[in-house]
Design a protein around this nucleic acid. Structure first.
Lengths: 184, 184
DNA sequence: CCTATCATGTAATCCGTTACATGATTAT
DNA sequence: ATAATCATGTAACGGATTACATGATAGG
């Protein structure tokens, strides 16, 4: 019952196990890979270690399969469920982090010449386009009537971001150089 | 000259110092706070420790002010400049992380009843609206003719995200319950 | 059969974060 | 004068990431 801070990873694991009833770390890995993980990545190693932490906090319980493959199933405890529901209901205002390396580069584009900026913008536009298509194909692989399902939200928001990013970078790639540098 | 991996924080520090010529950690802190930091946060403690790391890697040089306040100024070395330009020019396709706790909650909204989802959506809409206004005011505080300056890119993209998020959550808050649960 | 890839972990490192701490300015 | 905030760090912890490792399964 060690005290430990609940991180986003904790809530992810708690939530996935609550939804599934029980799950092995590999189940978690797959579930993450095809949904949230596309937008907010959680390395698989954590999906093996985090449940152990949560067991030590009394929020999960481990049920090792006695026969067959001895899989490690994790189940949520009532304390775990309570913690999860508390987090879900709490109106907490946490901050959003948009960690986009392309934007960080853009922030320093004054260090690049015009050509360099063009190259960056073109590459970013392409990358986001590709990503957009990947997410779209993922979204399409879902039954259409489920597309509006709230749990697909992260994916949908990811799509919105990628769409915006494609336009954003296209715009930058197309921008005319500032007047002052017209005649260098 | 220890080998060390260059993280986004490294590039941030290198870039800011390259732009400024030289800077104290506090200069970095301020520069971050009013621009990128709004979208991708970098705790101030790192802005004090990271330059030290970079010095040990030979990418920065420290110049302690001899008179007055003995400020610790950091200057970029030619190796540092090279590393920075390499990173800026490299076409590397890194992944974007959108770490939005609201979206993580939404992912688990099947665990909430309709009222709970409404509450979540309303709270998120409000939070994003507020954030949007904060970013807008920040953007306005910049000279208008500089608004399109590439280095304001992260802020602009942040604005696009927040705008999309407001609509996104409004949409969710407004959604009618699925037909199947009409007559419970 | 042999080779990929799947499935399942463990270990070590290190970066990111939180917490603590304190002298110097500025405002009241 | 005193309180508040600015400016400037340091220390410690722990979670996140990377790297390593290996048996099982399936495809060719």
């Amino acid at each position: 019952m060690a005290e430990l801070r609940l991180t986003p990873t904790s809530h992810l694991v708690l939530g996935l196990i609550a939804l599934a009833g029980r799950a092995t770390p590999y189940d978690l890995k797959r579930a993450v890979a095809e949904r949230v993980g596309q937008v907010w990545s959680f390395p698989h190693a954590q999906l093996y270690t985090e449940p152990v932490r949560l067991v030590s906090a009394g929020l999960l319980r481990e049920e090792r399969e006695s026969g067959g493959r001895h899989r490690r199933y994790f189940v949520i405890t009532s304390e775990g469920k309570a913690a999860l529901m508390k987090w879900l209901s709490e109106p907490r205002s946490e901050t959003v982090e948009i960690r986009d390396p392309g934007l960080l580069r853009l922030f320093f584009s004054d260090l690049l010449d015009r050509r360099g900026l063009q190259t960056l913008a073109a590459a970013q536009q392409r990358a986001h386009q590709k990503r957009l298509e990947a997410l779209e194909s993922l979204a399409r692989s879902t039954a259409p009537q489920l597309y509006r399902e709230p749990s697909l939200g992260p994916l949908r928001m990811g799509l919105l971001y990628e769409k915006a990013a494609v336009d954003f970078w296209r715009d930058i790639a197309a921008a005319k150089p500032p007047a002052k540098s017209r005649k260098h």
